[in-house]
Nucleic acid binder design. Structure first.
Lengths: 113, 113
DNA sequence: ATTATACTGAACCATATGGTTCAGTATCGC
DNA sequence: GCGATACTGAACCATATGGTTCAGTATAAT
Protein backbone atom coordinates (compact mmCIF):
# COMPACT_ATOMS: atom_id res chain seq x y z
CA UNK A 1 0.00 0.00 0.00
CA UNK A 2 2.17 2.88 1.23
CA UNK A 3 1.94 4.77 -2.03
CA UNK A 4 3.50 7.81 -0.32
CA UNK A 5 7.18 7.90 0.67
CA UNK A 6 7.28 6.79 4.31
CA UNK A 7 8.62 9.47 6.62
CA UNK A 8 11.14 9.00 9.40
CA UNK A 9 8.44 8.70 12.05
CA UNK A 10 6.53 6.18 9.92
CA UNK A 11 9.62 3.99 9.68
CA UNK A 12 10.67 4.33 13.31
CA UNK A 13 7.19 3.61 14.67
CA UNK A 14 6.82 0.62 12.33
CA UNK A 15 10.28 -0.60 13.33
CA UNK A 16 9.49 -0.65 17.05
CA UNK A 17 6.05 -2.22 16.51
CA UNK A 18 7.67 -5.65 16.19
CA UNK A 19 8.78 -7.55 19.33
CA UNK A 20 11.76 -9.12 17.59
CA UNK A 21 13.07 -5.72 16.59
CA UNK A 22 12.45 -4.26 20.05
CA UNK A 23 14.43 -7.17 21.47
CA UNK A 24 17.28 -6.37 19.10
CA UNK A 25 17.23 -2.75 20.24
CA UNK A 26 17.20 -3.81 23.90
CA UNK A 27 20.15 -6.06 23.25
CA UNK A 28 22.07 -3.31 21.46
CA UNK A 29 21.34 -0.84 24.25
CA UNK A 30 23.81 -2.88 26.32
CA UNK A 31 26.46 -2.32 23.66
CA UNK A 32 27.39 -3.06 20.04
CA UNK A 33 27.49 -6.66 18.87
CA UNK A 34 27.91 -8.82 15.79
CA UNK A 35 24.85 -9.86 13.79
CA UNK A 36 25.31 -13.57 14.46
CA UNK A 37 25.79 -13.08 18.17
CA UNK A 38 22.57 -11.12 18.47
CA UNK A 39 20.73 -13.52 16.18
CA UNK A 40 21.67 -16.61 18.18
CA UNK A 41 18.78 -16.67 20.72
CA UNK A 42 16.09 -15.88 18.16
CA UNK A 43 13.97 -18.77 16.90
CA UNK A 44 14.33 -17.97 13.23
CA UNK A 45 16.75 -18.33 10.35
CA UNK A 46 19.69 -15.94 10.09
CA UNK A 47 18.25 -14.70 6.80
CA UNK A 48 14.97 -13.85 8.48
CA UNK A 49 16.80 -12.18 11.31
CA UNK A 50 18.84 -10.08 8.89
CA UNK A 51 15.64 -8.71 7.40
CA UNK A 52 14.72 -7.30 10.79
CA UNK A 53 18.15 -5.74 11.07
CA UNK A 54 17.65 -4.12 7.69
CA UNK A 55 14.31 -2.66 8.81
CA UNK A 56 16.06 -1.14 11.82
CA UNK A 57 18.82 0.19 9.58
CA UNK A 58 16.19 1.67 7.26
CA UNK A 59 14.69 3.50 10.21
CA UNK A 60 18.16 4.76 11.13
CA UNK A 61 18.02 3.09 14.53
CA UNK A 62 20.97 0.80 13.89
CA UNK A 63 24.31 1.40 12.23
CA UNK A 64 26.45 -1.35 10.76
CA UNK A 65 30.22 -1.47 10.42
CA UNK A 66 31.78 -4.29 8.43
CA UNK A 67 35.16 -5.68 9.41
CA UNK A 68 36.01 -8.69 7.32
CA UNK A 69 33.08 -11.06 7.50
CA UNK A 70 31.82 -9.61 10.76
CA UNK A 71 29.03 -7.05 10.76
CA UNK A 72 28.96 -5.14 14.01
CA UNK A 73 25.72 -3.41 14.87
CA UNK A 74 25.45 -0.34 16.99
CA UNK A 75 22.43 1.57 18.24
CA UNK A 76 21.74 5.01 16.83
CA UNK A 77 18.96 6.26 19.04
CA UNK A 78 18.47 9.73 17.55
CA UNK A 79 15.59 8.85 15.16
CA UNK A 80 13.61 7.59 18.14
CA UNK A 81 13.16 11.23 19.12
CA UNK A 82 10.88 11.72 16.12
CA UNK A 83 8.37 9.43 17.81
CA UNK A 84 8.73 10.80 21.35
CA UNK A 85 8.51 14.35 20.05
CA UNK A 86 5.35 13.61 18.10
CA UNK A 87 3.77 11.96 21.14
CA UNK A 88 4.82 14.83 23.38
CA UNK A 89 3.38 17.40 20.98
CA UNK A 90 0.04 15.64 20.87
CA UNK A 91 0.07 15.15 24.66
CA UNK A 92 0.52 18.87 25.02
CA UNK A 93 -2.65 19.49 23.03
CA UNK A 94 -4.42 16.90 25.11
CA UNK A 95 -3.30 18.40 28.40
CA UNK A 96 -4.23 21.91 27.37
CA UNK A 97 -7.67 20.62 26.57
CA UNK A 98 -7.91 19.03 30.01
CA UNK A 99 -6.73 22.26 31.62
CA UNK A 100 -9.39 24.29 29.84
CA UNK A 101 -11.98 21.74 30.89
CA UNK A 102 -10.87 21.96 34.51
CA UNK A 103 -10.95 25.74 34.45
CA UNK A 104 -14.42 25.64 32.94
CA UNK A 105 -15.74 23.41 35.70
CA UNK A 106 -13.95 25.42 38.37
CA UNK A 107 -15.57 28.60 37.07
CA UNK A 108 -18.96 26.92 36.87
CA UNK A 109 -18.66 25.70 40.43
CA UNK A 110 -18.06 29.21 41.68
CA UNK A 111 -20.99 30.63 39.77
CA UNK A 112 -23.56 27.90 40.60
CA UNK A 113 -22.80 25.97 43.81
CA UNK B 1 2.09 -12.94 9.94
CA UNK B 2 1.99 -12.02 13.61
CA UNK B 3 1.51 -15.55 14.82
CA UNK B 4 1.84 -14.33 18.43
CA UNK B 5 -0.88 -12.26 20.08
CA UNK B 6 0.14 -8.65 19.51
CA UNK B 7 0.79 -6.77 22.74
CA UNK B 8 -0.41 -3.30 23.61
CA UNK B 9 2.86 -1.70 22.57
CA UNK B 10 2.81 -3.63 19.26
CA UNK B 11 -0.62 -2.28 18.48
CA UNK B 12 0.03 1.28 19.63
CA UNK B 13 3.32 1.56 17.73
CA UNK B 14 1.72 0.08 14.61
CA UNK B 15 -1.24 2.44 14.99
CA UNK B 16 0.90 5.57 15.04
CA UNK B 17 3.13 4.36 12.19
CA UNK B 18 0.50 5.47 9.67
CA UNK B 19 0.19 9.17 8.74
CA UNK B 20 -3.59 8.98 8.31
CA UNK B 21 -3.99 7.62 11.81
CA UNK B 22 -1.61 10.18 13.27
CA UNK B 23 -3.69 12.88 11.58
CA UNK B 24 -6.82 11.44 13.18
CA UNK B 25 -5.14 11.54 16.58
CA UNK B 26 -3.99 15.12 16.02
CA UNK B 27 -7.52 16.08 15.07
CA UNK B 28 -8.98 14.37 18.15
CA UNK B 29 -6.44 16.03 20.41
CA UNK B 30 -8.39 19.25 19.76
CA UNK B 31 -11.53 17.57 21.04
CA UNK B 32 -14.01 14.76 20.32
CA UNK B 33 -15.73 14.66 16.95
CA UNK B 34 -18.01 12.53 14.83
CA UNK B 35 -16.53 9.98 12.42
CA UNK B 36 -17.88 11.70 9.28
CA UNK B 37 -16.65 15.11 10.35
CA UNK B 38 -13.14 13.82 10.88
CA UNK B 39 -13.25 11.74 7.71
CA UNK B 40 -14.28 14.64 5.49
CA UNK B 41 -10.82 16.04 4.58
CA UNK B 42 -9.27 12.62 3.93
CA UNK B 43 -8.92 11.53 0.31
CA UNK B 44 -10.42 8.09 0.78
CA UNK B 45 -13.77 6.36 1.10
CA UNK B 46 -15.61 6.49 4.42
CA UNK B 47 -15.29 2.69 4.62
CA UNK B 48 -11.52 2.93 4.25
CA UNK B 49 -11.41 5.68 6.82
CA UNK B 50 -13.43 3.60 9.28
CA UNK B 51 -10.84 0.85 9.08
CA UNK B 52 -8.24 3.28 10.37
CA UNK B 53 -10.56 4.26 13.19
CA UNK B 54 -10.95 0.61 14.10
CA UNK B 55 -7.18 0.17 14.23
CA UNK B 56 -6.97 3.10 16.64
CA UNK B 57 -9.80 1.61 18.71
CA UNK B 58 -8.00 -1.74 18.73
CA UNK B 59 -4.93 -0.01 20.14
CA UNK B 60 -7.12 1.63 22.77
CA UNK B 61 -6.19 5.11 21.58
CA UNK B 62 -9.71 6.08 20.60
CA UNK B 63 -13.05 5.52 22.28
CA UNK B 64 -16.36 5.59 20.47
CA UNK B 65 -19.76 6.55 21.83
CA UNK B 66 -22.81 5.97 19.65
CA UNK B 67 -25.77 8.32 19.89
CA UNK B 68 -28.30 7.47 17.26
CA UNK B 69 -26.50 7.29 13.94
CA UNK B 70 -23.65 9.48 15.11
CA UNK B 71 -20.42 7.89 16.31
CA UNK B 72 -18.45 10.33 18.37
CA UNK B 73 -14.77 9.60 18.77
CA UNK B 74 -12.67 10.65 21.70
CA UNK B 75 -8.98 10.33 22.37
CA UNK B 76 -7.83 7.93 25.06
CA UNK B 77 -4.14 8.71 25.36
CA UNK B 78 -3.21 6.31 28.14
CA UNK B 79 -1.98 3.42 25.91
CA UNK B 80 0.50 5.80 24.32
CA UNK B 81 2.44 5.60 27.55
CA UNK B 82 3.36 2.02 26.76
CA UNK B 83 5.45 3.32 23.86
CA UNK B 84 6.98 6.31 25.66
CA UNK B 85 7.82 4.15 28.66
CA UNK B 86 9.51 1.54 26.50
CA UNK B 87 11.55 4.21 24.72
CA UNK B 88 12.47 5.84 28.01
CA UNK B 89 13.62 2.52 29.49
CA UNK B 90 15.82 1.81 26.52
CA UNK B 91 17.13 5.39 26.53
CA UNK B 92 18.13 4.92 30.14
CA UNK B 93 20.27 1.93 29.19
CA UNK B 94 21.76 3.89 26.35
CA UNK B 95 22.57 6.89 28.53
CA UNK B 96 24.13 4.74 31.22
CA UNK B 97 26.33 3.26 28.56
CA UNK B 98 27.36 6.72 27.40
CA UNK B 99 28.03 7.75 31.00
CA UNK B 100 30.30 4.78 31.57
CA UNK B 101 32.10 5.56 28.33
CA UNK B 102 32.61 9.15 29.39
CA UNK B 103 33.92 8.10 32.77
CA UNK B 104 36.27 5.66 31.11
CA UNK B 105 37.73 8.36 28.89
CA UNK B 106 37.87 10.84 31.75
CA UNK B 107 39.83 8.34 33.85
CA UNK B 108 42.12 7.55 30.94
CA UNK B 109 42.81 11.22 30.37
CA UNK B 110 43.93 11.66 33.96
CA UNK B 111 46.18 8.65 33.88
CA UNK B 112 47.84 9.33 30.49
CA UNK B 113 47.73 13.00 29.42
C1' DA C 1 44.49 -25.42 -0.29
C1' DT C 2 40.45 -26.70 2.19
C1' DT C 3 37.03 -26.00 5.17
C1' DA C 4 34.25 -23.39 8.23
C1' DT C 5 32.10 -18.96 9.34
C1' DA C 6 29.40 -14.90 8.46
C1' DC C 7 26.84 -13.24 6.10
C1' DT C 8 23.78 -11.70 1.41
C1' DG C 9 20.40 -12.30 -2.42
C1' DA C 10 16.83 -14.41 -4.94
C1' DA C 11 12.79 -16.90 -5.10
C1' DC C 12 8.96 -18.30 -2.86
C1' DC C 13 4.93 -18.56 0.48
C1' DA C 14 1.14 -17.21 3.75
C1' DT C 15 -0.93 -13.68 6.07
C1' DA C 16 -1.56 -8.63 7.02
C1' DT C 17 -2.59 -4.09 5.55
C1' DG C 18 -4.75 -0.38 3.15
C1' DG C 19 -7.60 0.50 -0.07
C1' DT C 20 -11.93 -0.15 -3.12
C1' DT C 21 -17.17 -0.99 -4.29
C1' DC C 22 -21.62 -2.42 -3.32
C1' DA C 23 -25.23 -3.63 -0.46
C1' DG C 24 -27.40 -3.23 3.99
C1' DT C 25 -29.12 -1.22 8.58
C1' DA C 26 -30.44 2.23 11.66
C1' DT C 27 -31.68 6.79 12.63
C1' DC C 28 -33.00 11.56 11.71
C1' DG C 29 -35.56 15.37 9.34
C1' DC C 30 -39.54 16.52 6.92
C1' DG D 1 -44.00 7.13 5.68
C1' DC D 2 -40.02 8.62 2.70
C1' DG D 3 -35.78 10.15 1.62
C1' DA D 4 -31.34 11.55 3.29
C1' DT D 5 -27.56 10.70 6.55
C1' DA D 6 -24.25 7.95 9.10
C1' DC D 7 -22.44 4.54 9.30
C1' DT D 8 -21.20 -1.16 9.00
C1' DG D 9 -20.05 -5.58 6.69
C1' DA D 10 -18.71 -8.52 3.06
C1' DA D 11 -16.13 -9.37 -0.85
C1' DC D 12 -12.42 -8.24 -3.41
C1' DC D 13 -7.71 -6.46 -4.88
C1' DA D 14 -2.71 -5.08 -4.84
C1' DT D 15 1.16 -4.53 -2.20
C1' DA D 16 3.73 -5.15 2.25
C1' DT D 17 5.55 -7.99 5.81
C1' DG D 18 7.64 -11.81 8.08
C1' DG D 19 9.06 -15.90 7.37
C1' DT D 20 11.33 -19.93 4.73
C1' DT D 21 15.06 -22.52 1.75
C1' DC D 22 18.81 -22.74 -1.24
C1' DA D 23 22.66 -21.01 -3.49
C1' DG D 24 26.44 -17.80 -3.51
C1' DT D 25 30.41 -14.67 -1.90
C1' DA D 26 33.93 -13.20 1.00
C1' DT D 27 36.79 -13.80 4.81
C1' DA D 28 39.09 -16.47 8.55
C1' DA D 29 41.13 -20.60 10.54
C1' DT D 30 43.71 -24.89 10.04
Amino acid sequence: MVQYRPTKIDRVAAAISDPTRRAIIERLARGPARVSDIAEPFPMSLTGFCKHVKVLEGAGLVRRTRRGRDNTLELSPEPMRAVTQWIRKYEQFWNERLDRLEKFFATNKEKSP
